[in-house]
């Protein structure tokens, strides 16, 4: 959030120039320090501190009984987290890359998401499944997809995606405290590229509210994850054209804060949704459908989507053709404004 830093709590430390990765690390440190039930598990999360260094120093600080290097088996990681959570632990399970989530999918969809309902609230699964996701870092096959919609479709879980170091810190803390299972997707393209100060005060950010990053009156731009950076850039370029764009970062994909989006679009009458995931059947489509259902006669132009394609993500050489760019968002916004 670009809002001013919160008032300092007694135990708060200001961490200067933190990357998103460092923010994740700080949130994990704080959560583990505050609550013995928070445990970490995953591949390479212990001694190595994670392949991206998100869990660096945690095993040293909290011991290998709370920061556990697992065998290389994703279904196992997710299933073990399910079992732990039914006994009152709050596991944070790392899936090393979103592309390797599929063996774990069964446990997320068939157990974590359903345990509370299945047992009428007797047992529940307060797990955070962390996974780096998204393209733009020239990674090998299976390391670049944005598959959040696959999970947003599942009843019983929450899907959270931060787009800045401060939101990563606050949303991760809230995800860990949440009594519901949360899929926490970390946009790895901005793992190190964005820096901001963080107040390490253990205060979480709400999991039920979108973040309005910039207010505007002519058009609403909705995005999430790494692409929020380009969306904000686009809004500033539009400003130069005399166009006032409001920018909403979803933050929490599911459950969706429809009210914030709706209020903005009622005001502006125009909406561009920008996401890196494939074009069809996604979160963007859900938002467009919601606006069609609830704000059709407030719309002054068709809703536009700026997205990846319904293709397999190309290998690094051609990856850039897939990725939506700032200019694509600017053009979509101008086209939308020129309608009528």
């Amino acid at each position: 959030m670009n809002a001013p830093l919160k008032e300092l709590q007694p135990n708060a430390k200001v961490l200067k120039d933190q990357t998103l990765l460092e923010a994740v690390n700080a949130a994990l440190f704080t959560a583990m320090g505050n609550d013995d039930d928070v445990v970490l598990l995953g591949e390479d999360v212990g001694m190595n501190g994670g392949v991206f260094r998100a869990t660096a120093g945690l095993q040293e600080a909290f011991g290998n009984h709370r920061v556990m290097d697992t065998p290389l088996a994703e279904a196992l990681i997710a299933g073990v987290a399910v079992g732990m959570s039914t006994q009152g632990l709050k596991p944070v399970a790392e899936l090393q890359f979103m592309g390797f989530v599929f063996p774990a999918f069964e446990h997320i969809a068939c157990h974590a998401a359903r345990m509370r309902n299945r047992t009428r609230g007797r047992l529940s699964c307060p797990i955070v499944f962390r996974a780096p996701f998204g393209g733009g870092i020239h990674a090998p096959e299976h390391h670049s997809e944005s598959t959040e919609a696959l999970f947003a479709h599942l009843p019983g879980i929450r899907v959270v995606i931060p787009s800045s170091p401060r939101r990563a810190y606050g949303l991760l803390l809230s995800a860990i405290e949440s009594p519901d299972p949360v899929l926490f997707l970390e946009p790895k393209r901005i793992y190190r590229s964005l820096k901001s100060d963080i107040i390490d005060d253990g205060q979480g950010l709400p999991l039920d509210t979108c973040f309005t990053l910039k207010e505007g009156s002519d058009i609403t731009l909705v995005s999430w994850g790494a692409l929020v950076t380009e969306t904000l850039d686009a809004a500033h370029e539009l400003e130069a054209h005399g166009i006032s764009a409001e920018v909403i970062d979803l933050g929490t994909i599911k459950p969706l804060d429809e009210a914030t989006i709706l209020a903005s679009v009622m005001k502006t009458g125009r909406c561009v949704i920008a996401h890196e995931a494939c074009h069809s059947f996604g979160v963007g489509a859900e938002i467009a459908a919601m606006l069609a259902e609830k704000a059709l006669f407030n719309l002054r132009a068709p809703i536009a989507r700026v997205t990846g394609y319904d293709t397999i993500m190309p290998l690094p050489t051609n990856e850039h053709y897939y990725m939506p760019r700032t200019n694509d968002i600017v053009e979509a916004a101008i086209n939308t404004l020129q309608y009528e």
């Binding site: 445990v39 009984h65 709370r66 556990m68 279904a75 196992l76 997710a78 299933g79 073990v80 987290a81 399910v82 079992g83 732990m84 959570s85 039914t86 006994q87 009152g88 632990l89 596991p91 069964e106 446990h107 068939c110 157990h111």
Partner: peptide, 16 residues
């Protein structure tokens, strides 16, 4: 067989 991984998680919680 998915219950096997859950049991391993339950056992892990006892160990922790």
């Amino acid at each position: 067989a998915t219950q096997c991984t859950h049991a391993a998680g339950v056992a892990s919680s006892f160990k922790i």
